[in-house]
Design a protein around this nucleic acid. Structure first.
Lengths: 204, 204
DNA sequence: TGTACATCAGTGAACGCGCGTTCACTGATGTAC
DNA sequence: TGTACATCAGTGAACGCGCGTTCACTGATGTAC
């Protein structure tokens, strides 16, 4: 296998991996299909045996990203729902910082068009949200709270996490990329905000 | 002036306006300079008398967007700092929904490169953040709270607002675009979360 | 008021570029008998 | 174990396309005298 056989064997994965590597270096829209093929060591027409077109390859990339995010969110087994929520927030922010281009791309609405038909990307995204919703519901239960609109509560919770991740990735305001310790500190502050508000007096 | 004079008169503004209109129809990276010129009723070389290149035009578009956001944030005169924060959150989300393409684009880090030199976009973005910071600080003061890291507190606050705006614009999870009433409801829920946490028992 | 002239803000042709995609092809693989 | 053959997964040439940018140009404007 050392001398590059005619058949690649696992070109589909290799193309996705090449696209992932390119995404670390440049924005998603300047990724070129021919360059992905080049990186995978294959002619520029070869990808068409594995993906209908460029868009399909990029969508597959987004799908993989969502699957990884889902996997990370679930990779825990803590009994305390608050600890679970902290975990979700932390891995979410860490994922965004580790894969900034994919993070910005995987939420593009145009990826899921046309609407109405079954779409695996939408489904996995929904499952990510459901993991969060269940955790939020568990915290409600542990506090004996009845919430009228769990979706809205979950959306606000997701917003706080998503916003922190987004700003850390892209905010023009931040002079330096944050250190892992700063990230954890911000996620803890976020936890406390969700727990008791942004203006609780037990600020540390 | 009815018969299209040779000199346009205010082509720079007209080009930005054309770009803004195009941004309502398509993602930022598929906006083409030649089409912007076409929309402005001018030859495709004319923009080069007003912008160094395509990137400069798009950056000017982002700058205008930030200026409008700053203006909206400041367009109020409420004595209660909590009311001011609510206003900021509301106009932020409304702006994002009204200008989704620019909203996604104006935060791109690459817009502010090369770093180090003075950059008007960075400055206006910072001023937006400062409006928020001052409001948060005023709420702290009204509560007699001393905060160790105002920047972090402000960043978390901004995250919550920014995240809600981002998700409402782009989330693949939401089946329908939200109504104005839903938006206000979510911003109120956000307010209450910042005030007393996501799990306060006074859920309505 | 008129004229010369510099400057500004357009035009339209042209350039090079590299893309996404298609096509006929060919080498490799696997299965039936 | 061999052989025929269908199928799969590559190749490389070619296509059309429209872009961003440059250039020499020209029409319009404004100022000096």
């Amino acid at each position: 296998v050392a001398q590059a056989p005619y058949h690649h064997g696992n070109l589909r994965s290799a193309l996705l991996e090449a696209a992932r590597a390119l995404a670390l270096e440049q924005p998603i829209d300047s990724i070129m299909l021919r360059e992905v093929a080049r990186r995978a060591g294959v002619s520029h027409a070869a990808p068409y045996h594995h993906f209908a077109d460029k868009r399909a390859l990029l969508k597959a990339l987004a799908l993989e990203a969502f699957k990884e995010l889902l996997h990370l969110s679930q990779a825990q087994n803590q009994p305390d729902p608050k600890a679970r929520l902290h975990h979700i927030g932390l891995v979410y922010v860490q994922f965004a910082l580790a894969h900034p281009t994919e993070f910005g791309f995987m939420f593009r609405k145009s990826l899921c068009e046309p609407k109405g038909v079954y779409d695996e990307l939408t489904e996995v995204a929904n499952r990510c949200f459901e993991v969060l919703l269940k955790t939020v519901a568990a915290i409600n239960a542990s506090k004996g709270i009845e919430v009228q609109d769990l979706q809205a509560q979950g959306l606000v919770c997701w917003s706080a996490i998503h916003g922190l991740a987004s700003l850390l990735v892209e905010a023009p305001v931040l002079p330096e990329p944050p250190t892992p310790a700063q990230i954890e500190g911000l996620v803890y502050l976020l936890d406390r905000t969700l727990e008791s508000g942004l203006f609780a007096s037990n600020q540390r």
